[in-house]
Simulated assay, not measured.
Amino acid sequence: MKFIFSFIFFMLVGFSFGQSFVISPHDTAGSGEPGGSFELEVYIINQTAEQRTMLATRKNELLPDENWNTSMCFDVQCYPPYVDQVGGNIPANDSMKFSITFNTSDQPGYGEALVVFEDYGSGDKDSVLFTMETARQPVFTITYKDTTVQGIAGQDLEGSGYFHNISNDSIIAYVSRISNDIPETWSSVLCFNICLPPYLDTDSTKLGPGDSLLYKLTFFTDSVAANGSATLAFYADAGTDTVKQLFSATTTPTALEDEDPIVSGAFRLLGNYPNPFNPGTTIRYYLPKAAHVRITVFDILGKTVAQIADERQAAGYQAVYFDAKHLPSGAYFYRVQAGSWIQIRKMLLLK
């Protein structure tokens, strides 16, 4: 009889010798894409034989930026983000869902919120730390064919690779030259969807799911041995992560080019600058002695499009300006002939 009375008393006071409630974690840590809303939840279990009034207070909220916020729900009743304390009644020996929603921005980040649960009647407390991390899933990869290129002074040196769309959707792919640390007499040209003039830095195009496209960065060097570099940035649509890659070029002289033309007494073609150009460029060369100079420009099919010099010139450094405003964009070659000395170089007109 005494045992039965003690058991009934124990039930009526609601397990007064222990915690009146326990928390059953369901989802307390989440992850996902930036810009989404993510609900995390726990269940509060009433361990007593009477209804309990529970309070949930949000404390120590740490969010990555002002565009993140959290909002809480107790059972089916939800509250706006500015409400820090919510509550509800849990029937005897029953449970109730509590959830907190992280509303994130379009930037990746990590946030957390500590929620303290309290039995209003008994004063029993417990707490749960909810965490949320957002990160972008990659939608593209970049492969590199040549990032370090070498050649003879005056050659065009090319770095290249592929932009791959690895997502299931079409994307707008961007390639941008974000640095261009090259000698003053060099130029670099970015080709992706099209080949850009040297003064433009960014190109973009649409890539379908699984598509790939070649990109190229060409260094147009002059006849003096030197080195230079440029950095390309790759990204897709607004807000995606950016991949950066440095491309470098080094030119070395030939035995003849390593000498001062005045000392060596040799003919020397110094190249044209700028290259690429629009609409004009200057071709420079050195004559160790007076000679009849003929400079001819022809297209990639070998057709002559201009003759810009055909005269006797004095010894020394010479320069001839070529105006190509009447010609379409494209690659051209110029041949400099001085007596028996002949040399040919390529130049690129970009309009």
Rank of each mutant, 00 (worst) to 15 (best):
T282C: 12
F234K: 03
Q47E: 09
A309W: 06
D124T: 06
V83K: 01
C191K: 09
Y273D: 08
I4R: 14
S329G: 15
A255E: 14
S95D: 04
S340M: 14
F5N: 12
R294Q: 12
R268Q: 14
Q19W: 08
P138R: 07
L129R: 08
T281N: 11
G339R: 12
A315R: 12
P288G: 07
Q107W: 01
E33W: 09
R345M: 13
L350K: 15
S248V: 03
G159A: 04
D126H: 02
Q85F: 04
F163V: 01
T252L: 14
T221W: 03
S37D: 15
I194T: 14
L217W: 01
S179W: 00
N67K: 13
V243W: 01
G265E: 07
I178T: 13
M11W: 04
Q85C: 07
I171V: 09
N168H: 10
Y215K: 04
T218C: 12
S16V: 09
I300S: 14
T53P: 02
D258W: 06
D146A: 10
L301Q: 14
S105D: 02
T282D: 14
I342F: 10
F267L: 14
L214Y: 09
P209I: 02
G30L: 05
Q137R: 10
P209V: 06
R58K: 15
I182R: 02
P25G: 06
G35S: 04
T252Y: 15
I152S: 08
K97Y: 00
I166W: 02
L301R: 08
F333G: 03
S187F: 05
M347V: 15
K2I: 08
N275I: 06
A324N: 13
V42W: 05
Y199W: 12
F219S: 02
L213F: 09
Y334R: 07
Q318V: 11
A338R: 05
Q19C: 08
S31F: 11
I45W: 01
M96A: 15
T304F: 03
Y199A: 03
T231R: 00
D146P: 04
C191D: 00
G111S: 02
